[in-house]
Design a binder for these strands. Structure first.
Lengths: 378, 378
DNA sequence: CGCGCATCTGACAACGTTGTCCAGGCTCTA
DNA sequence: TAGAGCCTGGACAACGTTGTCAGATGCGCG
C-alpha cells in the first residue's frame, strides 16, 4: 500500500455533522484558510450537490435525474429541461465513484511502466492512452523505477481501484501476485518484457532478431571484434539482445571474447568505463553494439572523444540520430505500436472473449545512417 | 471455496451462496467466453470476495475485518490472525471505490497535459507522479493534444472521478468551466501556462526573460538580423517568448522586420519553410531564435543543409544537443521542477490551508554550446 | 461474589449512484 | 365509455466500505 508521508491524509476523518445555522456561523468566523477542505454543509465532497439535490430542485424523482444524466429514454422533453436547468444551476457533476461501485466497471485502465520520463515510454504511454480514450476509458499510470517491489505495490493499488485492466511493463520476474486479480477478471497485458511465472498476454519487440540483424550488419561491413554493452541480463530485453549478439557472432564463426561484453551497465559511468576498456589494449573492438538508447547515447559521447573511428549500432532509435556526424545506425523498435497493440489486446479481453494468452512479437527495423557502415579501423 | 462453517445471516440479502459442487459444474458447463464478465457466484467484480466474505470465513463481524484491513487498533492478535488468514485464502483486496465513496477522498490527482509523448512533458509528468507518490496518491493523466475542448472534457472527467486535485497544462484560454469544481474543493494548479479567466495558482517558466536573454546572447555576438520562429501567439508561452524577443531587439535599438518573424509554425513543414524564407532573399537573417524544442529540431535540420553558418539559440533543451556540430545553445527550462513545484503547491492546498492564488515563476538557464556563439556570416 | 470498567466486537446506517419494479395517467380501440 | 396497453416517474434496494454506538466479555477490586 502507498503510505502517506505528510499530513495530507486521503483517509480523512468525517467532519462532524453541523446543522445549517451553525454552519452559517462557521462561514463567518472560520478563517478562509480552514475552509477549503472542511467546507460545510452537506456531504464530504465539499458542498457538492448530489442527484438528490438536483431532483429536489427540479421537483422530480431521483431516478428521473439519473435518467437524464445518462441519456436514458423515458423522460419528457419538459421534464428533461427542468432537470437540465437544475443541474446547470447547482453545478452538479455525477460522482463516478458511486457509479463505479454500482456498476462494477470503472472505465479506467492502469499502466505500470518503468519511467515516464524515458523517451521510449512517452510514446508508448501515449499510444495506450489513445486506445483507452477510443474506448471511453481513462488511463492511470505510474512508474516502477525498475523496482519489482514498487511495480507490485503499484499494480495492486491499481487493482484496488478496480481498474478494468492493467498494462504492465514488468520490472520484476514473478507476477504470481496478480493471479487473484486476473482470476477476478482484471484484464492484463504485459508489454516490452514477458510476465514472470504466470501465463498472460505479452507484446514485445523482436529483441533477439533485432540485435542479431544489427550485429550481422556490422559483420557484413567487415567487423570481427564487436563489443556488446547492455543492461543486466535479468531484464528480459537485455538477455534477448545479448542472445541475438551471440547468435550473429556464432553464425559468422567468431568466438566471442568475454572482454567484448559488458552486462549490467546501468549508469553512464559504467557504460563509459566499459566502452573505454574494450576500445583499449591489444585487439580492441572495431565496432560496438549498444543494447539500449541510454547506452547508445553514452557510447556516442565516448566515441566522439576517441581518435580512431569505431562503428556503432544502437538498439532503440534516438532523436536527432540523423544529425550527428556520422548519423547513428540503429535497430528501431516502434514504442507506439507496442503500446497500441497491447492496449487493443486489453480491450479485446474486456469485450468478453476470453482469449488464450498469446505472445505477440513486433518486428524491429534497421535504420542505416552511417555509424554502422564504417569499416573496421586499426 | 467457502468455508463449510460459514453461514449467511438471515439479514443477508446477497444471492444465495453456490456450494462447491454447483460451482464446479458451472465452471465446466459455461463456455469460457462468457465467463470472465459473468463469472458466478457473487458480485459484479468477477467473483471478488468482499469484506463480508472474509468476515464469514474468519467467523468474525464485518467491521472487524475493516479494522484489520485498515490497521485500526482494538483487535486481539488472535482475531487479527484469523482475519489475515481468511484474506489470504480468499485473495481479498479492498475495493477502493467503495472506500472512496464512503470517505470522500480518492487519494488520486489528475494531470491534464498536452502530449505525453513530448519529451518536455515526460519529466514533468514524472515529477508530478513522484510528489503524488510521496503523498500516497495515484496519478491519472491524459493528453489534451492542444485541443481546448478535449482539455475540458478530460478535466471534467477527472473531476467526476473525484480526484482530490488537478494539475492542468492549459490548452484553452477559458477555464471558467472549472469554477464549480474549485468551489467544491478540487485543488487546482496550472503549469507551464496560466489559467484563463479564473484566478488560480500557476507555475511557469520565465518565458519572457529566458527568450530575452537568449536573443540578447545572439545580439552580444554581433547579430542584428535575428529571426524568430515560434508557436501560435494564442499559446501563452509562445506569446511571452515573442515578447522577450521583441524586448531584446528593442533594447538593442533594432527595428524588427516582420519577415524575420514566423508565428504559428505548428508543424515541421511550416517551420522548414519559414526558416528557408528568412534565410534567403536580400538581407537574410544571420541568426535564428527557435521558440520551442520542436522548432529547434527542425531548424537544426534546415541549417545542416544550409551552406552559410547561421547562429541558433533554442528555447527548451534537447537531448544530444551537445553532440551536434556545433553544439546547440539553448535556453533551458526545468520541466521536472515545474511539475514538482506545481504538485507540491497542490498538496499544500489539500492540506487545508487555502492559499491565495499565486503565480510562481521559475528561472531559465542559458546553456552555451556553440551554435549561439557563431558570429554573423554574410 | 457481584459490580464496574476497560477492552473487544458487531449491528446498523450512510456514502451517491443505478437497476427493478410498480403506480398512475394517458391514449387507443372496441 | 370501459378496458387494455403504453409511457413516464418515483420508491426502494443494492453496490462494498467505514463511522457510530451499543452490546458482550473478561478482569480486578471491593
Amino acid at each position: 500500500m502507498l503510505d502517506a508521508t505528510s499530513s495530507y491524509k486521503p483517509t480523512d476523518r468525517a467532519p462532524p455533522p453541523v446543522d445549517e445555522s451553525d454552519e452559517r456561523q462557521d462561514r463567518r468566523i472560520v478563517p478562509e484558510t480552514t475552509r477549503r477542505a472542511d467546507r460545510l454543509p452537506g456531504n464530504r465532497y465539499g458542498n457538492r450537490p448530489t442527484m438528490k439535490d438536483v431532483a429536489a430542485r427540479a421537483g422530480v424523482g431521483l431516478k428521473t435525474v439519473s435518467r437524464v444524466v445518462n441519456g436514458e429514454p423515458g423522460v419528457t422533453p419538459d421534464t428533461e429541461r427542468r432537470v437540465q436547468e437544475a443541474i446547470e444551476a447547482l453545478g452538479f457533476r455525477r460522482n463516478d465513484s458511486a457509479r463505479v461501485l454500482r456498476k462494477g466497471r470503472t472505465a479506467s485502465i492502469g499502466l505500470v511502466l518503468e519511467d515516464l520520463a524515458d523517451p521510449f515510454y512517452g510514446p508508448l504511454s501515449r499510444a495506450v492512452e489513445e486506445v483507452a480514450r477510443a474506448h471511453g476509458a481513462l488511463l492511470i499510470n505510474g512508474s516502477s523505477a525498475e523496482d519489482p517491489e514498487r511495480e507490485q505495490e503499484l499494480a495492486l493499488a491499481l487493482c484496488a481501484r478496480r481498474v478494468d485492466g492493467l498494462v504492465v511493463i514488468p520490472a520484476g520476474d514473478d507476477h504470481r501476485y496478480l493471479e487473484p486479480e486476473i482470476r477476478a477478471g482484471v484484464a492484463t497485458v504485459f508489454v516490452d518484457r514477458p510476465a514472470g511465472r504466470i501465463d498472460a498476454d505479452v507484446v514485445l519487440s523482436d529483441n533477439y532478431g533485432g540485435a542479431r540483424d544489427g550485429v550481422a550488419h556490422l559483420l557484413a561491413h567487415g567487423h570481427r571484434r564487436i563489443g556488446f554493452i547492455g543492461d543486466m541480463p535479468r531484464i528480459h530485453t537485455a538477455a534477448e539482445r545479448l542472445r541475438g549478439y551471440r547468435a550473429a557472432m556464432e553464425d559468422a564463426g567468431i568466438t566471442v571474447d568475454e572482454r567484448w561484453m559488458s552486462l549490467g551497465a546501468t549508469n553512464p559511468q559504467r557504460v563509459r568505463r566499459a566502452a573505454e576498456e574494450m576500445l583499449s589494449g591489444t585487439d580492441p573492438v572495431t565496432a560496438i553494439f549498444a543494447g539500449n538508447n541510454r547506452v547508445t547515447v553514452t557510447v556516442i559521447r565516448v566515441l566522439a572523444e576517441h581518435s580512431r573511428p569505431v562503428a556503432l549500432v544502437g538498439f532503440d532509435d534516438i532523436e536527432l540520430a540523423d544529425l550527428l556526424q556520422p548519423g547513428v545506425t540503429v535497430v528501431a523498435q516502434d514504442a507506439a505500436a507496442l503500446g497500441r497493440t497491447a492496449a487493443e489486446r486489453l480491450f479485446r479481453q474486456l469485450e468478453g472473449t476470453l482469449l488464450a494468452p498469446e505472445r505477440i512479437e513486433l518486428p524491429t527495423r534497421l535504420i542505416t545512417r552511417g555509424s554502422g557502415e564504417l569499416p573496421p579501423a586499426v
